[in-house]
Design a protein around this nucleic acid. Structure first.
Length: 467
DNA sequence: CATGCCGGGTA
DNA sequence: TACCCGGCATG
C-alpha cells in the first residue's frame, strides 16, 4: 500500500496514487499523463502536449473533456460540437463560462505536463471514482467523467452518482472547491478538493479524503494516516479510551470493534451490490464508517470538576464520519458522527458544566429557588458569576443513572456525537443542597407527621417550605 | 445522629 | 399516582 511506485516529480498533492488498482494498469497509457490535480507543476505549462487530440482520434464527442489554451493558459473544456468540415471544435469552458472555437489541433485531451523525455510511469493508480486523467479512461468511462466534470464545474455539485448519504458529504466538499481552483488546476473540482491536506504522503481515494475534509479538522494528520494506510494503526489515545467503528450506512449503524470487521461489513452488506469494477477504489469502505470512542468506566465518585461520562460512545470525526461518524458523525457524533456533525453548544464541555453547576438551588445568591421542576429546566443556560468553589463542591455526585449516562455520553468532552441533541435535563441528578428553611419535620415534629406535606411524608423534597 | 431527599419499589 | 422506604449526603 505504500507508495512504492509513486512518481517522483509529481506534486505532493498530486500524489493521489495507489498502486493496487488493477483497472488502472493499462498498457495503452504510455503517453504522457496529465496532472489532473492541478498541483505545483501542472497546468500552466504552455503548449499542447503530446496528448494531442488527433493522436487518439479525430472525432470529438459532445461532452468530452478537452483542454485548450485560453489566455495563455490551459483550460479545461467540454466539447460542445466538433465541426468535421472545418475541423473546428466548439468548446465550453465551464470555468470561464466561455465558449471558444478551436482548431482540432489546438484541442487536446490531456492536460499538458512538462514534456516528459522519458515516461515516468506507465500507470498512475488512482481509484476509479477519482476520475483520473482522461488519458487513462476508457471510452465508456469518459462519458461518465465528462458528465461529472460538467456538473462539478457548473454547479459545484457532487460528481459521482452515489448513495444518498454520500451526496451530503461530497456535495459539501464540492462546495469548498472554489471555481478558481477549478480553473487553475485545469481539472475537476474533485482534485482541487484535496488541496487542504497538502500532504506529501500518498493520498487516499478521493471519496475518503472528501469525507474527511468534512468530518474532521484539517489538521488531523493522524486520522488521515490511518485511513491512508488502511490499517488500525495504534494511535495515540487518551487513557481508557476504546475504539470502535460504526457503520454510517443509512439505517445501519452497526458497531464493530475492528476496522477490518467494519470494512468487511460495509463491503459485504452495503457495497456488495457494487460491481467489482466499481469497487476498484481501493478502500471505499473507509468512507462508510466512523470511529467512535468508548471511555472506560471509572469509579463513580470522581473529583469534582471532572466530568466523567460513564460509557460514552462518541463519534470520531477522524474517519469520514464525520462526522462524523461523524458522525462520522457524524460525528462522532464523530461526531459523530456525524457526523454531520452537530457541534452545537449544548454538546460542549463548557455547557456541560454550566448545566451542572447552575441549578438555582445551588447558587443561593442568584435567584430565589423556583419550584423544583423549574429549577431543573430553566436555569441551564443562565451564566453565573457567583459560582465559587464552595458551590462547586456542593454538587453531589451520586451513582449515575441511565439517563445521566446517556446525557453524559452525549456531552462527552471529546468529540461530541453528531446525534446528540437536546438532552433531558430533568434527568440531571443534582441532589439539592439542604435548604435552610424549616421543613415539615422540624415544624410539626415527627409526632405530627400527618401534618407534613406529602413530599415530606414520602421523604421527598419538601413542597411546603421551599428553600 | 438528625435531617433532607433521591431513586426505586409496590399497590 | 400515591405511598413507602433504602440509602446517601450533609450539617
Amino acid at each position: 500500500m505504500l507508495p512504492k511506485s509513486r512518481l517522483g516529480k509529481r506534486s505532493p498533492l498530486g500524489a493521489l496514487v495507489c498502486t493496487s488498482c488493477p483497472s488502472m494498469e493499462s498498457p495503452l497509457e504510455t503517453g504522457s499523463h496529465g496532472d489532473p490535480e492541478g498541483g505545483v507543476g501542472g497546468p500552466t505549462m504552455g503548449s499542447p502536449g503530446p496528448q494531442h487530440l488527433s493522436r487518439f482520434n479525430n472525432k470529438l464527442l459532445p461532452g468530452q473533456k478537452v483542454y485548450v489554451l485560453c489566455g495563455g493558459r490551459e483550460c479545461t473544456g467540454v466539447v460542445e460540437q466538433h465541426n468535421h468540415v472545418d475541423n473546428e471544435v466548439a468548446v465550453l469552458l465551464p470555468v470561464l463560462g466561455q465558449h471558444v472555437l478551436r482548431k482540432l489541433e489546438d484541442v487536446w485531451t490531456c492536460p499538458t505536463v512538462p514534456p516528459p523525455p522519458h515516461q515516468m510511469s506507465s500507470c498512475i493508480d488512482v481509484p476509479r471514482r477519482s476520475y483520473c486523467s482522461p488519458c487513462y479512461r476508457s471510452a465508456e468511462s469518459m462519458d461518465e467523467m465528462m458528465a461529472a466534470l460538467v456538473l462539478t464545474s457548473l454547479s459545484c455539485s457532487p460528481l459521482v452518482p452515489s448513495p444518498p448519504q454520500r451526496d451530503t458529504v461530497t456535495g459539501s466538499a464540492s462546495m469548498e472547491c472554489g471555481g478558481g481552483e477549478l480553473s487553475d488546476s485545469g481539472s475537476s473540482g474533485y482534485w482541487s478538493c484535496d488541496h487542504g491536506y497538502g500532504s506529501p504522503a500518498p493520498s487516499p481515494p478521493i471519496t475518503e479524503t472528501e469525507g474527511h475534509s468534512l468530518a474532521m479538522p484539517p489538521d488531523e494528520g493522524l486520522d488521515m494516516e490511518q485511513v491512508l494506510f488502511d490499517e488500525p494503526a495504534p494511535r495515540k489515545r487518551r487513557n481508557s479510551v476504546k475504539v470502535a467503528y460504526r457503520c454510517l450506512w443509512p439505517n445501519c449503524g452497526k458497531i464493530l470493534k475492528s476496522v477490518v470487521g467494519i470494512k468487511r461489513h460495509i463491503r459485504t452488506l452495503h457495497l456488495g451490490q457494487v460491481s467489482e469494477h466499481e469497487r476498484c477504489s481501493c478502500s471505499e469502505e473507509d468512507f462508510y464508517y466512523t470511529e467512535i470512542h468508548q471511555r472506560e468506566p471509572r469509579p463513580l465518585t470522581r473529583p469534582l470538576g471532572v466530568p466523567t461520562p460513564s460509557t460514552p460512545w462518541s463519534a470520531s470525526p477522524s474517519s469520514p464520519s464525520p462526522t462524523g461518524v461523524g458522525p462520522g458523525a457524524g460525528g462522532d457524533s464523530p461526531t459523530e458522527v456525524s457526523p454531520q456533525l452537530s457541534q452545537s453548544a449544548p454538546s460542549t464541555p463548557d455547557f456541560f458544566w454550566q448545566v451542572h453547576s447552575e441549578h438555582s438551588y445551588q447558587v443561593p445568591v442568584q435567584v430565589e429557588a423556583p419550584p423544583v421542576s423549574v429549577s431543573y429546566s430553566c436555569h441551564c443556560t443562565t451564566p453565573t458569576s457567583t459560582l465559587h468553589p464552595r458551590q462547586g463542591a456542593s454538587f453531589r455526585v451520586r451513582s449515575v443513572s441511565v439517563g445521566e449516562q446517556w446525557l453524559q455520553q452525549h456531552s462527552a468532552p471529546i468529540r461530541p456525537h453528531p446525534v446528540s441533541t437536546s438532552p433531558q435535563r430533568s434527568h440531571w441528578s443534582t441532589r439539592r443542597i439542604r435548604g435552610e428553611a424549616k421543613k415539615c419535620r422540624k415544624v410539626y415534629g415527627i409526632e405530627h407527621r400527618d401534618q407534613w406535606c406529602t413530599a415530606c411524608r414520602w421523604k421527598k423534597a419538601c413542597q411546603r417550605f421551599l428553600d
